[in-house]
Design a protein around this nucleic acid. Sequence first.
DNA 1: AACTAGTACAACCGCATCGGT
DNA 2: GACCGATGCGGTTGTACTAGT
Length: 241
Amino acid sequence: MPHCSSYKKAGTIPMFSTAIMVYKAVMQGEKLRKGPWYEEEDKQLITFVTILGDRKWDYLARVSGIKRCGKSCRLRWLNYLRPNIKHGDISIEEEQIILQLHEQWGNKWARIARSLPGRTDNEIKNYWRTHLRRKIMQAREQENLQCKREDGKQDFLFQKVDFDVQTYEADEHKPVDDTSGTSNTSLDALGFSSSAVTNSPYEVQFFDWDYNCTESCISYTSGNSDDNDVWEWSDSIWDMN
DNA sequence: AACTAGTACAACCGCATCGGT
DNA sequence: GACCGATGCGGTTGTACTAGT
């Protein structure tokens, strides 16, 4: 594959000349491109979003000359090129927030992402699938084993909660709406109590912010001038240390 | 060194919803 | 109210990378 800015882990030295040749050849064709984005495409997209704003993606894709559909441009912008995107490892605090909000809302990735400034729904979704889900499964299995060891006589009690991927896949789509009478099973299993999450100084500010933003459906993807306010908010949150 | 399985993550796809006409 | 294009969202796939053998 020619050089592609998408794969940040790529360890090989990009072959720019080859990439440009391939890129130009591709650009000459009329068919819409798919797959990883080239650096040139990124630059082009940034330029045109700056000029036209982050709306009307089909129009933007047409006039920019990028051989991509509007949808693809939008996704690339939102998940990678947008300013204030936080690339890099998810912090422990962010992880705790994700766990808690997932416990509360289920697979509402966009909603969860709105509560984590700079993180995208895609990133959170991927992080959940690759890191947290496995952690929780392992923790639960361990919990199960421990319970069985502690009281072998009552093994039958645990037959229902024997855990496998299938049952967990089904479980994870069920949000817990009323948190008052429920235990945070996943959080507890990982040693994160919800109080630990809400007691974090970081988290206190976060919930204030979330309260203001989430239910009023503020979206950082919208093209109006209020966006800047949202990002100023988020900046102040992340600058707290 | 070569192969394989597992992991991480960007990007795609299909469906739902929204907003303008 | 119906239609249609744009946008948002969640699930899934494709592929580079990494660790183990």
